[in-house]
Every structure is written in C-alpha cells, then in structure tokens.
Design a protein around this nucleic acid. Structure first.
Lengths: 163, 163
DNA sequence: GATTTATAATTGCAAATGCATATTATTTTG
DNA sequence: CAAAATAATATGCATTTGCAATTATAAATC
C-alpha cells in the first residue's frame, strides 16, 4: 500500500544505515579521510614557511582570484570569517597580502596578494603538487576528469553561496 | 568526453601552477570546499545533541567497526590522538562508549559503542543521510559508484596505515 | 529622511586543538 | 635477560578556533 514509487536516482532506499553502507563505500567518510591526510601532509611543509592552513588557503585562493572582499574570501578558502580575519592580520603584517578599502562600499576591505605572497605560495606549491600527484597516482586521465566533474556537481548541490 | 591525446598518466607536465589549473578543476580544493560544507551542516545538528565533530566521528566509526584500540580509532575517525583521547573521556562519562582493557596488551584500551551511543548516532543519522543525499542529488547511480571507486583508490594512495 | 533591518569586518572569551612530553607496557637486541 | 627502542594512551600548555557580541556602514521601509 505505502509502496514507495521512487524515481530511481533520488530516494528509493527506505533508510540505509551507515553500518549497511560500510565506511569504505560512504563517500563523505572517504573524502574526510583523504583530505585529512592531504591537509596533514601539507601542514608540515607550511609550518616550515611560517604558514597555517587558513593562511595557506587564503593565499592559494588569492593566487587565482585576486582582490576579494574578506567575506567572499572566507567562502572560497573554507575558513571561518573570524579565523580568516586574524589570519589576514598576520599575512598583511608579514607583507604577503594587501588590504584595500573598497571604493564603493566602505564596509568592505578587499584583499590582494603581493609579490612576496606569491613567492611564499610558490615555495609551497611543489609540495602541494607532489601530494596531489601522489593522490592520483595510477588513476588515468579520463577517470580523473570524471571525478572532478562529479565534484563540481556536488559542490553546486551543497554550497550555500553562488560561487 | 574528448579523446585524450596524452597516454601518460604519471608525470609529464613540467609543473602547472594553481592559477593555470583553476580552483574549480583542482580536486583537493573542491573536496575541501565540499567537506567544509558537509561538516559545517552537520555541526549544527550535533551541537543540539551535545556532540562535537570528533565525538560524532568516533561514534560513526564504532557503529561499523566495534571494539577498536584508541590508536586505530584515531586513524579511522580522522581525529588527532590527543583530541580523541579527550573526546572519549567525555563519551565514556556520558555512557556512549565503553572502555575495555585489551586482554593481550595492557597498553591498549579498546573502545566499544554502547546502546546509548547507538541511539545518539541514530538521532543524528537522518541529518547525515539528508546532507549525503543532497550532495549526490541528480547524480546517477553509476556515476556515484565510479566516484566512490576513485575515492577508494585515492585513499589507498595517500594513507599511511593499512586500513 | 528618520528608523529599522541587513551586511562587513573585528574582537572578547571560553572551549577545542595539537604539539611535545610523560607514563606505562611491550618488543627487540646484543 | 638487562638495556634500549618502540608503542599506546594521557596530559600540560600555548595556540587556535568559533561563537557571540560589537562597531561601522549601507539598504530598505514607512
């Protein structure tokens, strides 16, 4: 009577529990495991350069999209606004980023990366590339591409902002 | 999917920078963004249940693999050993987990989940399942499966332990 | 156009985190 | 088998984090 007439892809399962899925089939678990290692591996390198994860993330984002309002940067960099505020304080005093008041909205401070900031990131990049390569070792280009495509869909599904 | 020109899977590129790859094509970036949202979304629910991310992760793992040494649990749950130690202290005093001395090695404490612990996780599970479903919304089963398969390979590539 | 509401960024503060170290138990080695 | 090296867990402590409240500005509403 109360048969589920589910459209296949969406929600057909009554409610599978984690134990039934299994950790190694549960994507969020695997992703947390992988990113935990990725971030831990990089943290070591960062420490040597006087960087922290929030600082590094801010620089990495700014190396691609410059001159961002702090609130946008927080979203891109996946760092809490207040944490980022303090990280930027240090980055600015170390000369790795620049703070420019937004001409149109005086509440906004726009952050740009400096040459020194780029240089710092360049020092870290080999490690990032190495860990990245390690992660995808033995995975063919086509599979990598499909993987990224799925990730892009997932981000669209889950994000709370327009970017 | 356009035919790839390059047969090389390993390392052929001279050294592409992040700016050239672009944030939205850089898998670790996308994964951090997605997991950042996933974890933030759940944190809210957890707070209501008196749980934190480390506590929740420990319970989730234990619901699948019970009776783990603390050191193994730390790996599975992606939580720092010292952080986990303190999280377990609280979980035990709240009666959500049990601590049993290992009969063969008296350095080891094995952690098991209690009925109360399972009940707490059951309360959280609907939210986890909801965010999980949201993440994969519109992504066909086949693509999901391929995605998980790639994740499994990646974990094998990057992990430092045998599990 | 004055008042309410919303947004950007900073900051105070308590709690959480992670590193280094301590403690206890086990394994290895000479 | 004593001494040294290794392993599992706990803990001291300085730092980091995130929430809530604050300040300052802008937008909306009446």
């Amino acid at each position: 009577m109360n048969e589920a007439k589910a459209p296949e892809t969406e929600k057909a399962e009554p409610f599978q529990r984690l134990g039934e899925i299994g950790l190694s089939n549960f994507a969020p678990y695997l992703m947390n495991r992988i990113m935990g290692r990725y971030n831990a591996d990089l943290r070591q390198e960062m420490t040597g350069l006087g960087l922290t994860t929030p600082k590094m993330r801010a620089l990495a984002v700014l190396s691609v999209i410059d001159d961002l309002p702090i609130s946008d940067l927080a979203v891109y960099a996946v760092v809490e606004q207040s944490t980022l505020s303090r990280a930027l304080e240090q980055l600015a005093s170390d000369g790795l980023v620049r703070r420019d008041p937004d001409p149109n909205d005086s509440r906004v401070t726009r952050i740009g990366i400096t040459e020194t900031g780029r240089a710092a990131l360049d020092q870290l990049w080999p490690s990032m590339a190495r860990v990245y390569a390690q992660m995808f070792k033995g995975i063919p280009a086509e599979e990598r591409q499909a993987f990224v495509t799925t990730l892009q869909k997932m981000l669209k599904n889950i994000r709370k902002h327009d970017f």
